[in-house]
Design a protein around this nucleic acid. Sequence first.
RNA 1: GGCGCUUUGGCCGAGCAGUUAGGCAGAGGUCUGCAAAACCUCGUAGAUGGGUGCAACUCCCAUAGGUGCCUCCA
Length: 461
Amino acid sequence: MQLHDTLTNALQDVQPINKVVTIYSCGPTVYDYPHIGNWYSFVRWDILNRALLQNGFKTNWVMNITDVGHLVSDEDDGQDKLEKGAKREGKTAWDVAEYYTDYFTKGLERLNFSKITMLPKATDNIPEQIELVKILESKGHTYVIDDGVYFDTSTIEDYGKLAQLDLKKLRAGARVELNPQKKNLTDFALWKFSPRDEKRDMEWPSPWGTGFPGWHIECSAMSMKFLGETISIHAGGIDHIPVHHTNEIAQSESATNKPFAKIWVHSNFILVDGKKMSKSIGNFYTLEDIEEKGYTLDAFRLLVLSSKYHTEAQFSWEVLGSFQIVLNKLNAWSDLQFQGLESSELVTSYKDSISSIKKEIANNLNTPRVLGLINGMLNKTTELGIDSNAIKDAAIQIDALLGLTLSLRKDINKAQKVKLANRKKARALNNWAESDAIRDDLLKEHIEIKDVLGNQIWNRN
RNA sequence: GGCGCUUUGGCCGAGCAGUUAGGCAGAGGUCUGCAAAACCUCGUAGAUGGGUGCAACUCCCAUAGGUGCCUCCA
């Protein structure tokens, strides 16, 4: 299986570590509701995990919960997002973190995520973060100024290799005032001190003074703690490349002298109505907005899968609507699994399709191609005849790969089956009035009837 | 202001230097008690201007739009 690696800007083979593919993906900062852009990225890594599993790999996937230290700005002079959220809501930072962590984990279930091995919180791993700063200090990579312990980026040769940062040009183009105590523009905080006259909700003692960890150190510390010093894949949003991941690499590789991750994958943004999502424009949507407008989260998943993770994608209600239609067709297809039809040719055809689908997703997660293949697969259904068992199996396999819920469809109940039988009798007698009445009746129960090839085919809508 | 990325038909969106992507929407048709579904056909895309090549949507340059980071909201 191959993925596009940001560091080498090329396709690279996924390499297991001790026979397990280890994945670390940067998770949510739990200070507010995640929007569909956040979910868009997380769904990508769910697909990555599923694609690996379905292609025979074992995986160990860790996604962190940032519940402290993520400043409003990536610069180190902004406010802590958690403390700011707490102030806004009149709660403590701990309450805010708990509320949004809970919301997030429920969201993972609502979106039918595959098994994430671990969702560690930054605040549960403070000693490991302090320990990592100590190692960096002992190796001469740090210095202390008024407001914290900083990483001296001039102590390493290849700082900025991920983002291909040209440090001279970065400095020339910068408009912000450099903190006079910082040695280099790119130096970043490893540990921040609590303000002198203020007690923070979240603060811990450290060898350098009471305070809280910088945002980047948590990912390095937890990735190493739970997955080892070198991992197979590190994943995140494209926005993490220039600062967050660049700094993770700097501090991790300085501490261990080993490569931090074999492959770096980044998901691009999804634009809403052609614009970047932002609260001020009012195109800032959540999962609730999707459901309130009558769309399903499966349809949203299809929308995510319709583009490649590496390219910029478009979201609009019109586009989501078109994927809801596609999903409804897939669901109608899945409903055929209850209708006792047989075709041996279809069984073979599906096997071939599923196998090429697995190959295609292993090709840098080419999900748009996968959707094309699934469409071809569905076309075969009418061409070769319908086989209920084959459809049941195929639905299970598609769900395992894409995280849809096609295999969770329910059969109609006994009363509905009786109505269907009565309709068949009426039709045999050319009693169209009776036949149509039953069809209308079932439609009220959201069961739609179509008369295909002499059979009554139903689907739930 | 600096440094990048991107631009495919009404909409979404792939691959590919020369052979159909696919889907959604739309038009026409076949089938059908009706309806729906299904199937067939169609519009014949590649921001603009140059360049390299026997050949460019696919490579290079410029211009324009979008977008990202440096500079709050991913």
